[in-house]
Design a protein around this nucleic acid. Structure first.
Lengths: 181, 181
DNA sequence: ATACTTGCAAAGCCTTTGCAGATCT
DNA sequence: AGATCTGCAAAGGCTTTGCAAGTAT
């Protein structure tokens, strides 16, 4: 499943308008992230800047390999640094590590009120976001009350075979993964 | 977070009656699992038998380490065998590998119509089941239709700080994990 | 000036695999 | 007999860390 590790292509926005919007949103996130860094007394370094830029403009979880492999980040710093930057960002509450379907952790930016759920292809490992209303948010409170947990959040992942993989053989459950996407 | 790796204690049923019920359900699952194995022409070996017994009576995901460490399984076979047995069971559709909050995969038995959602403590790593109605099942179809995926399933995990960890220091986000439970 | 960051290289942690011998059907 | 399993030991893949040098404040 090499594909999972390679840089995930950012989905092409449907229109120029949508592209503008996505860019604006990315800029907004980036600004927020810088602000939080400042408040957390994290120094502004090239590595952090590049990583935050990437995360802010990427609407899906990224692995360490994805990040380290991304051209601009790779040109700026070492993979170990990427790891440590993410670690710091996590401590600062900017980033969260989640586990989807691989041994490798995925990282997401925790922009406020920006919860997303994902769909993963069990064939090729592609990750997309559902773009559906998430029905679980309100359940969190209930879980907390019944079991006594606090500071609750959730992660919801859908797993299935994507259209591309459906056309290729050898992609089914338990079989070896294909590399279509 | 050593606790995650050690054998997870099976929750004490509230009453003798509940205990009986849980046992009966475990037996039912075990019978089903054996049946599927037979149909899949998987040989009946001590290792498989022990592992299936454990999974059938355990209502929460178990890691390789948990399984390999369990007394009866450890006495029966080698960790590499546990790994391979689980691999085979996964291919046969009896077991699924899921990723919760650690690099290590968790394994669950896929007893039909037995979907569960979990709550994980970000402090100590404890895993419980929510015992709440899962509202996501019906969303699966929608996700499939919109994005063209087939053979969809989902995994939903809640993350928070459990009651035990709330009493201990150093358990908060980004901090080092405690070992209370 | 000094505390935080980074690169490089090495260490770790678990999973995963090869192979020869044991087992199940 | 013949295909499957298993143990042991070694290989792998990625994350994680130590240390000395570099850099932001």
């Amino acid at each position: 499943m090499k594909q999972t590790r390679a840089a995930l292509p950012v989905a092409e926005p449907a229109s120029a308008k949508a592209a503008d919007k996505a860019l604006a949103r990315g800029a907004e996130k980036l600004e927020w992230a810088r602000q939080v860094c400042r408040e957390g007394h994290l120094r502004r370094t090239p590595a952090r800047e590049e990583i935050l830029q990437f995360l802010a403009h990427q609407d899906r979880p990224a692995t360490l390999a994805t990040l380290s492999g991304e051209r601009r980040i790779a040109a700026t710093c070492d993979p170990a640094t990427v790891f440590r930057v993410l670690q710091k960002l996590e401590e600062a509450g900017l980033v969260r590590r989640i586990w989807l379907h691989e041994r490798a952790p995925y990282y997401i930016l925790l922009f406020p009120h920006d919860h997303r759920d994902y769909v993963l292809c069990t064939g090729c490992g592609k990750v997309e976001e559902t773009r559906l209303e998430c029905p679980v948010q309100k359940l969190e409170k209930e879980v907390g009350e019944r079991l006594g947990y606090i500071e609750i959040h959730h992660e919801l992942g859908f797993y299935g075979v994507c259209p591309d993989c459906q056309e290729k053989p050898g992609t089914r459950r338990g079989g070896k993964k294909s590399s279509c996407c």
